[in-house]
Write a protein that binds this DNA or RNA. Structure first.
Length: 463
RNA sequence: GCCCUUAUCGUCUAGCGGCCUAGGACGUUAGCUUCUCAGGCUAGAAACACGGGUUCGAAUCCCGUUAAGGGCACCA
């Protein structure tokens, strides 16, 4: 039975697109193998906790289509799925390791540790704990019994640690280069390393698919598994999403929250589809495919090792493709929803055929169609030169009894010819009078939708 | 500084020793369609980081160099 998970930390206002990216792979791998996908909240850093972050994160994951089989919201056989509610479990396991002499108490002050690190760096050595407390455990225990704050550190063995990564192959690290990692913090919370190993084991996680940022600490996790006497899960470290300058995707340089994209009118399906293309490609080279199709063709072994640059331009293109493939009623629904159901449905539905292939994201709709809902209050040209033309335009339009795009077009076409004005110039002036803008949906059709009265009204301003 | 990882068009990627004169997509350039902008269609420019091996043969395997990234916290 395959069980995968994502374990986000609620330290931001929403899910990070990087989490969605690895979440997607975890989800796909579980589903492809008829297993389970779990969401676990790792809220052990009390100092960086963002209020409401967890709720938002969970909601977005759901909205986007990455449905969990077990999570803090829906529960499951291994509940609780929130680390802050599992404190006694971690403590118990940390103590167990101390008893087995595979971990030890430490009461060193942050100041001492800091000083030590700096000295080591200056001497070009690997910064690591000097085991001062390890060699004085009896004394340390006495201090603790007197109320001294303490942490529990993992005793890293002095040997090579080797493991096979599903995407990177054989990884070998010398224990000499590893620090005696703190497992249990002095506030009683576990560090990531303890929490992740204990929970992944207890929750029966079979495949740990996570960001490559964890690759260097995986040997510590292996030591932990071995110290507990637990079987290892399979590890797959996938590359991190990058900024255009190749540094890891950060909010300084890029929008990183799912909501940043959703609020721009990027569809969840498009976002998922785009993210799927980061570090992986469809076996048939397809660029556009559903989540279900992705699940059926995804394979961890096809995941690339190189770190991809997140390209918002291609995301928008992809989103545009999704928008164009949508039915009119679905697109209408999405647009209305995007604008909080504040736009009149009857007009929106009429405008859709005119703009469907002109928008790349839902937020492109209003700038393009605003003039359908209200008369322009500013014009992208003063048009003082065209007064005479508009007088004639008004007369001709007034004459039309059958107010249809085709009729309007013919009428205006022949007027332009009669006046000896180039089509491009004539229609540009008319366009600005009607829409206020130099760029608009097709004019005749737009005028049909606006209606004869409204069009005459807008033109009368210029004659 | 030390440890780990990575290296194909600007970007995402295909390629897994001969099918490569390196394919596709985004973006970009030109043309056509046209009342603007999109869209569509056609054509084009654009890459195997470098140096050594191995081999009859290397983008593909090995070793170095260089570059990039990640990690080195009582953060995840």
């Amino acid at each position: 039975m395959v069980r995968t998970r994502i374990a986000p930390s609620p330290t931001g206002k929403d899910v990070h697109v990087g989490s969605i990216s690895t979440g997607l792979m975890n989800y796909a791998w579980a589903k492809k193998n008829h297993g389970q996908f779990i969401i676990r909240i790792e809220d052990t850093d009390r100092t960086r906790l963002v209020p409401g972050g967890e709720k938002r994160m969970l909601e977005t994951l759901e909205q986007i289509g990455l449905h969990a089989d077990e999570s803090p919201l829906i529960g499951g056989p291994y509940a609780p799925y929130r680390q802050s509610e599992r404190l006694s479990t971690y403590k118990k396991h940390a103590e167990e390791l101390v008893r087995k002499k595979m971990a030890y108490y430490c009461v060193c002050s942050p100041e001492r540790l800091d000083r030590m690190r700096k000295e080591q760096q200056a001497k070009k050595q690997i910064p690591k704990y000097d085991r001062h407390c390890y060699h004085n455990q009896e004394e340390v225990k006495k201090l603790i019994s007197q109320g001294e704050k303490y942490v529990i550190r993992l005793l890293i063995p002095d040997r090579k640690i080797v493991f096979n990564d599903l995407v990177r192959g054989k990884i070998e690290v010398d224990g000499k280069n590893l620090d005696d990692q703190v497992l249990l913090k002095s506030d009683g919370f576990p560090t990531y390393h303890l929490g992740v190993v204990v929970d992944d084991h207890l929750m029966g996680i079979t495949h740990v698919i996570r960001g490559e940022e964890w690759l260097p600490s995986t040997p510590k996790h292996i030591v932990l598994y071995e110290s507990f006497g637990w079987p290892l899960p399979l590890f797959a470290h996938v590359s991190l999403l990058r900024n255009p300058d190749k540094s890891k995707l950060s909010k300084r340089k890029n929008p990183v929250w799912a909501s940043d994209y959703l609020e721009k009118g990027i569809l969840p399906e498009a976002l998922l589809n785009y993210l799927a293309l980061m570090g992986w490609s469809h076996p048939q080279g397809k660029e556009i495919f559903s989540l279900d199709e992705y699940v059926s063709v995804f394979d961890i072994k096809d995941v690339q090792k190189t770190a991809p640059v997140f390209d918002p331009v291609k995301l928008e293109w992809l989103n545009g493709e999704y928008l164009r493939q949508m039915s009119i009623s679905n697109l209408k629904f999405e647009i209305l929803k995007f604008y909080n159901n504040k736009l009149p449905e009857d007009i929106v539905i009429k405008t859709i055929p005119l703009i469907q292939e002109r928008i790349k994201k839902l937020s492109d709709y209003l700038p393009l169609c605003e003039f359908f809902f209200r008369s322009p209050d500013k014009y992208e040209s003063d048009m003082s030169v065209s007064k005479e033309m508009f007088g004639q335009v008004f007369e001709e339009l007034e004459k039309i009894s059958d107010w249809k795009a085709g009729t309007i077009g013919e009428s205006m076409q022949s007027l332009a010819k009669k006046l000896g004005i180039k089509n491009s110039q004539f229609f540009m002036n008319l366009r600005i009078a009607i829409s206020g803008k130099k760029i608009s949906p097709p004019l005749n059709e737009s005028m049909e939708i606006l209606g004869q009265k409204e069009c005459l009204n807008r033109i009368s301003k210029f004659k």
